[in-house]
Nucleic acid binder design. Structure first.
Lengths: 237, 237
DNA sequence: GCAAAAAGTTAGGAGGCACTAACTTATTTC
DNA sequence: GAAATAAGTTAGTGCCTCCTAACTTTTTGC
């Protein structure tokens, strides 16, 4: 019977750290599941002890459902706030890339700061200017103004069976060096990929991209999300 | 013999409030003069007592020369930081206006937040995209990357003699309602204006803008900065 | 099912930045 | 030049967000 401590929920402006927490919790829980204190701490690169305090404050604002020792979940209001921030972030990324020629490995860091400063109006104007994009430069879906997102879960390249082909829909992870490397290999959203072989014990995965053949480690492959094509396995191997 | 407390001056990133203080001090001292505690407080809409503490911290960082009870002055390093922020602010205003169709009465508030979040690279890309503007939408000069600004002081419309003509170079002040009103009257940077008459005791000033004749109060006129044209007084009255 | 490990919490502290109240220093003004 | 006024300062708080250290609860592994 945890006392429901609601606050007047008046869409008071959130601080930048608060928005970061909500984004992290959303990402962990995929929008609805619970998030563990340690995981939040790890994502935000802060000490777990710091999370307890902040989480309590966010719960007091009605953004989180929090039960001591049992992680947190976003409330409806928290989810909305998280999606608003996510929309800002991704629209900004898309805008930086399309309108200002920002390199795809650097849009993330810039957007990470701007998302807390840009007004909704600015974000909407950016979106309109580049033709209301549906995904950011990494292929992540952009939440709509009214808070809905495509939450389709794609298979990662690391899980794809040998012989299967698919289209890269998204690259998760924001490490610039990794993004540059993937770009070098031409593993980019929209590209068609076929898994040629997979070495056991977490060995390298061989694939064809266009007319190139290359192999990458499973850690990298796990960041590449694929929409499988009609499975014509056996066509070759 | 005030002990010169220098800190290693390692261009550590400034907080948003710190940048705001430096901007305010720059604006008050016109880049070099001293700024009074009370005036800083007023510009930033905070209590004078709050200024003392912050000013000490900025002095400790080598950004200000501060002597108790005698106001502050920017150091060279402080001046550079102030101009960097000012450049960000004005480039962002110009970009919002030119690239995103932002209305001129609203660019200020948006830029006020973005200036603390945008990287130098972003600001430079914005500037390049709109053709390296030299002034913002209100006519304020944009500092260059290397920290130089046009510091010309223009005459305000309130001080202009009757009969004198000039071109509006800049509108100071950022009150959206005031800006909208000026736009309505077509008193905008680039417009040619002639002072027709001036009522005594701070009475209204009559002027022609284009083929319109209108009159405004001296408080408003003080915000309109003019580059006088060759003085052909007597051409009319 | 109980002890060890893992996860999560509180306690206490620090720095930034604001506030009010009370005090000190400068500046006016006669 | 001394009293009144203005300007500026310190003192004491509070909130936000982070930290480390020490403690508690939950989970795991045998």
């Amino acid at each position: 019977m945890s006392a429901a401590r609601e606050e007047t929920e008046t869409t008071e402006t959130l601080t930048a750290p608060a928005e970061d927490y909500l984004k992290a919790i959303y990402a962990i829980g995929k929008g609805s599941g619970p998030a563990a204190t340690n995981e939040i701490a790890q994502r935000l690169a802060i000490a777990p002890a710091s999370v307890s305090g902040m989480v309590r404050r966010l719960a007091d604002q009605g953004l989180l459902a929090y039960e001591r020792y049992h992680g947190v979940k976003l409330t409806e209001s928290g989810r909305r706030a998280a999606l608003r921030t996510l929309r800002r972030h991704r629209v900004i990324e898309a805008y930086l890339s399309q309108a200002l020629g920002y390199p795809w490995d650097r849009v993330h860091d810039e957007a990470e700061r701007l998302e807390h400063a840009a007004s909704d109006e600015l974000v909407d104007r950016m979106a309109a200017t580049i033709g209301e994009p549906e995904v950011d430069p990494h292929g992540a879906p952009i939440p709509t103004r009214d808070g809905s997102v495509d939450e389709t879960e794609y298979t990662s390249l690391a899980q794809l069976d040998v012989g299967v082909s698919g289209v890269v829909v998204r690259v998760s992870g924001e490490n610039p060096a990794m993004l540059r490397y993937l770009a070098e290999l031409s593993i980019l959203p929209g590209k068609k990929i076929t898994v040629r072989s997979r070495a056991p014990y977490d060995g390298p995965i061989t694939l064809s991209v266009g007319r190139q053949e290359l192999s990458i480690g499973p850690a990298l492959a796990a960041n590449v999300l694929i929409a499988p094509l009609a499975d014509r396995a056996g066509r070759r191997g």
